[in-house]
Deep mutational scan, measured.
Amino acid sequence: MSIQHFRVALIPFFAAFCLPVFAHPETLVKVKDAEDQLGARVGYIELDLNSGKILESFRPEERFPMMSTFKVLLCGAVLSRVDAGQEQLGRRIHYSQNDLVEYSPVTEKHLTDGMTVRELCSAAITMSDNTAANLLLTTIGGPKELTAFLHNMGDHVTRLDRWEPELNEAIPNDERDTTMPAAMATTLRKLLTGELLTLASRQQLIDWMEADKVAGPLLRSALPAGWFIADKSGAGERGSRGIIAALGPDGKPSRIVVIYTTGSQATMDERNRQIAEIGASLIKHW
């Protein structure tokens, strides 16, 4: 067993022997301040990774656009098919120029040779490549099948209805392509620590998230040296922004954090800054 596999296998073990965790309302004060600064709703939840206990939450059962955070769930569904012998990570998928959609920095470079399922998941999570996500959605049967996968996990809230990039439209009061912070946090925890996926697939999923290259201005910008984070960000229309993450000190994750916002007129930089400040408060009061 590799060191990384050992780390993920012992996530519940280490967490069980940690000192009790206590909620700190100071972080919620910052979440509410972010709402004021952005002029928009902000949803927040913080779960203990081992027990699933909610440590703090704000608007945990209000719907927010998922945006690209759905790509972690998508690759979880792909990995479940791999575990069941219905898919192979090494299978190569070929596609054409007509398949390319807006923001496809990886797939646009491989029109000639195609990409493997493993490479597509890596591109979808680490670079948020939209064509990679659409190609992977095709392998599982489309958005409705991802929703069905989530329902089978016990998540009857999260739903995907459309493809990239239309799913980022974020129309107010439109339930399409949305989740709730509580539902997303619980589902992410199941994917990373539950028995739904094999140990190898859980490790692969967290490795992809740990290698995320496009979430630097968010929670990662607030992390002290030595902290662990595996995350996936999302951005959408109407001032929408979000991030889902597993993080913790001492090089291992111990909490799940989900943050979503929508309806702001603020710039992307300002949305990023507010999420980073929430992260800084979380870490300060850990």
Rank of each mutant, 00 (worst) to 15 (best):
M66C: 06
S128C: 04
E277M: 09
S201P: 03
M153R: 07
K213W: 08
F64R: 00
D207M: 15
A245F: 04
F149T: 08
I283G: 03
A230Y: 00
L196G: 12
F149G: 05
G85V: 06
N152A: 14
T193G: 13
H151A: 13
V42K: 02
G114D: 04
S201Q: 07
G216A: 09
S281R: 12
K252R: 12
A215S: 08
C121I: 05
V106T: 10
G90K: 12
S221L: 09
P25F: 10
L197A: 06
T112Q: 12
S80F: 13
L100S: 05
R241K: 07
G234S: 06
M115T: 04
L28G: 07
S240G: 12
M180R: 11
D83K: 05
H94F: 11
C121W: 02
Y44P: 01
D231W: 01
L38S: 08
G114S: 05
L282Y: 03
L150W: 06
R241S: 07
L167S: 03
F70K: 04
T187A: 09
L55E: 07
A124L: 03
V31I: 12
L79M: 12
T27C: 05
P105C: 00
A235P: 06
H151F: 11
E26C: 10
L28W: 09
A148L: 15
E46T: 10
M67R: 01
S57C: 07
G142F: 03
L120A: 05
D161C: 05
L197K: 07
R162C: 06
S68F: 02
P60E: 13
S80M: 12
K190L: 15
T187F: 06
I171L: 15
A211G: 15
W163T: 10
H151I: 14
R241T: 06
G43I: 00
F64V: 04
L160M: 10
S104T: 06
P253M: 15
D174M: 02
G236C: 02
R189M: 15
S221T: 14
K232S: 00
P105R: 06
C75I: 08
L247T: 07
A276V: 10
R220M: 01
D177K: 02
A222F: 08
W208N: 02
E46D: 07
D155W: 00
A185E: 02
L192N: 01
V72P: 13
W286E: 03
K53S: 14
A230L: 04
E46V: 09
M67N: 14
P25V: 15
F149E: 07
S80T: 14
L100P: 01
P249H: 08
E56T: 11
G141Y: 05
A211N: 11
G263C: 08
A182P: 06
G242N: 02
E169C: 09
I243L: 12
R238M: 10
R91W: 05
A200M: 10
T267G: 13
L205D: 02
L79Y: 01
V72I: 09
N50E: 13
L197F: 07
L135S: 04
P65E: 01
H24M: 10
L223Y: 03
T131D: 05
I229E: 02
T178D: 00
K32C: 08
E56G: 12
A230S: 05
E270H: 11
M180D: 10
N50W: 12
R255G: 03
Q88R: 15
G154N: 10
W286A: 00
A222Q: 10
Y103Q: 05
Q265L: 14
V258A: 10
T178A: 05
L79A: 04
I45Y: 14
P60L: 11
R202M: 08
S80N: 15
A84F: 10
Y103A: 06
D83P: 01
V258T: 08
A132I: 01
D33V: 12
Y95Q: 04
R176G: 06
P181W: 02
G114Y: 04
W208H: 03
I140C: 07
H24Y: 08
L218E: 01
L191I: 11
D269T: 13
A170L: 08
E26T: 10
I283H: 05
M67S: 11
G216Q: 10
E108Y: 11
L282Q: 06
T186Q: 15
T178Y: 01
K71C: 00
T139M: 13
V42Q: 02
S254P: 08
L188W: 04
Y103V: 06
T126I: 08
I256D: 03
P172Y: 10
